[in-house]
Design a protein around this nucleic acid. Structure first.
Length: 277
DNA sequence: ATGCGGACCTGTTAGC
DNA sequence: TGCTAACAGGTCCGCA
């Protein structure tokens, strides 16, 4: 479910209620997520407090004095802060209780989420160590992409969704960024011109920033930490619009599958040929 | 080395 | 109406 903007929205939302708060209890109702939650997870956390909540790609990092909780929301996970007790409903797998009475509750129907505990540098963890740069950082530039794309024939859409190239760009924002940059999703990356890399790079940054500002994209069930949906869906220009008219030229948007993911694009605005524009 | 398909798991929707 | 198949925001692994 959540791509980078959604994870960032969650991070900011829960930080306000949980930073510096002592953990009084941890309730695990289902420990079988993408990985099994470590057996000592509960005892490691109780009595400690959250010093900071960071994000690396789509991973949330809860920094405690003696270690770090690495938390991934998977495809369908959400984290909410409850200020009054509420009975657990279906798929509410984990609760973290704080001294200030707030509860951090994790719900994840598909259980693709992951919760890990590490006492060493989380950025060196095997799941994180190979990750590419943050798209909103200075390290993410057209120049960097050109270097990475050299001699590769990968489809541009698969390329920008590859964690090792850049983190946080999932199907929604990849689709949107390619539309904004006027690049056909199947274009082999070695064919892209520098000007197109510029457009793509800045489209990714712009779209992610806008999505964060609007609280992320709610397609079906994404909620911010306060339970409200995200409001970026109204801004989507290509994703989910197969068969509808392109906002630029009125042409009927098309759909195809790339790497088992649906891709919507405009056959007129997004061409292989780079000499337009 | 790269790149693709499959697997993980459940819920919703489209189609017959 | 009811059953089944396909598909869904992510990621890792193994095989070609």
């Amino acid at each position: 479910m959540p791509e980078l903007p959604e994870v960032e929205v969650v991070r900011r939302g829960i930080a306000a209620y949980t930073l510096q708060q002592t953990i009084t209890d941890v309730i695990i109702r289902q420990n079988h997520l993408r990985f099994v939650i470590p057996p000592d997870f509960k005892t490691q956390l109780i009595g400690q407090y959250i010093q900071a909540i960071a994000r690396r790609g789509k991973y949330l990092l809860f920094m405690l004095p003696s270690g770090t909780v690495i938390w991934h929301l998977g495809m369908s996970g959400s984290l909410q802060v409850l200020s009054t007790p509420q009975p657990a409903s279906k798929h509410d797998h984990v609760d973290i209780l704080f001294k200030n009475q707030h509860v951090l509750r994790f719900n994840d129907p598909r259980r693709f989420g992951a919760i890990l505990w590490t006492t060493t540098d989380p950025l060196l963890h095997p799941l994180l160590s190979h990750l590419g740069p943050e798209p909103l950082s200075k390290a993410f530039t057209a120049h960097y992409l050109i270097k990475k794309a050299k001699n590769k024939k990968t489809a541009t859409k698969s390329f920008i969704m590859d964690n090792k190239i850049v983190v946080g760009v999932g199907n929604i924002y990849a689709t949107e960024a390619l539309f904004a940059a006027g690049i056909h999703p199947l274009t082999p990356v070695k064919q892209l011109k520098p000007v197109q890399w510029q457009q793509l790079c800045s489209a990714i940054k712009t779209i992610l920033r806008q999505a964060i500002r609007r609280g992320g994209t709610t397609l079906k069930d994404f909620v911010q930490s306060d339970g409200k949906p995200g409001y970026f869906k109204q801004q989507l220009k290509a994703y989910g619009r197969n068969g509808e008219a392109c906002f630029n030229c009125g042409t009927c948007l098309q759909q195809l599958r790339i790497g088992q993911r649906t891709s919507v694009f405009c056959g007129l605005c997004q061409k292989f040929d780079s000499n337009r524009k």
